[in-house]
């Protein structure tokens, strides 16, 4: 059974309460069209689950397939250093059709990142973090993007709002009953 090996920690990008009964971890690639399809689904799932759900995003750029994926991740990490990770994450998924260098520079400017910060990011300042996410994902059984883990266990079921909410609610109830 594939289980999330690196537990959610301080280096993770997190939305939702730390004591939420369910944690959903996504391993994603900003250029992956399936991650793009899943992006609005997860937004809706978050809305419906409210405080019962903690959502975590980890990098899994498939750079051999997606030439812009690593630079997009570098931009998001630079935004994270400025406290604006989720704005960058959303911006990238809402503009998956424009992830070239000029576009990324433009998003960086919109996020208020200065040129030096962007340059350092693209020169690899955050690559160790991206590598660590990727490597931890491989060890956890990530089998493509997006890969979802619910309370540490890989979820291989359908990725529509209804299916996800059903599973997450069930896990939340079980966690509540066990506590």
């Amino acid at each position: 059974m594939s289980r999330l090996t690196p537990a959610v920690g301080p280096s993770d990008h997190v939305q939702g309460p730390a004591n939420a009964p369910v944690t959903l971890v996504e391993y994603g690639d900003y250029e992956c069209p399936y991650c793009g399809e899943t992006y609005p689904v997860l937004k809706e799932v978050q809305r419906l689950m409210g405080d019962k759900l903690r959502f975590v995003f980890r990098n899994f750029p498939l750079s051999q397939m997606h030439p812009h994926a690593v630079r997009a991740a570098e931009l998001a990490e630079a935004a994270a250093a400025a406290g604006r990770f989720w704005e960058a994450h959303d911006l990238l998924y809402e503009h998956q059709d424009a992830l070239g260098n000029f576009s990324l520079m433009d998003y960086g400017a919109r996020l208020g990142l200065d040129a030096a910060a962007l340059e350092a990011a693209f020169a690899g300042r955050y690559d160790a973090k991206i590598e660590a996410d990727f490597s931890g994902g491989v060890r956890s059984g990530v089998n493509g993007t997006p890969s979802l883990f619910i309370n540490g266990q890989r979820y291989d079921g359908p990725r529509d709002v209804e299916s996800l909410v059903t599973v997450l609610e069930a896990v939340a109830s079980a966690a509540h009953a066990a506590s």
Binding site: P33, Y34, L62, M65, N143, T145, S147
Partner: peptide, 11 residues
Amino acid sequence: VCGDQMALYNQ
């Protein structure tokens, strides 16, 4: 799909 096993192993 992007979840293709061979593409993943390639990475």
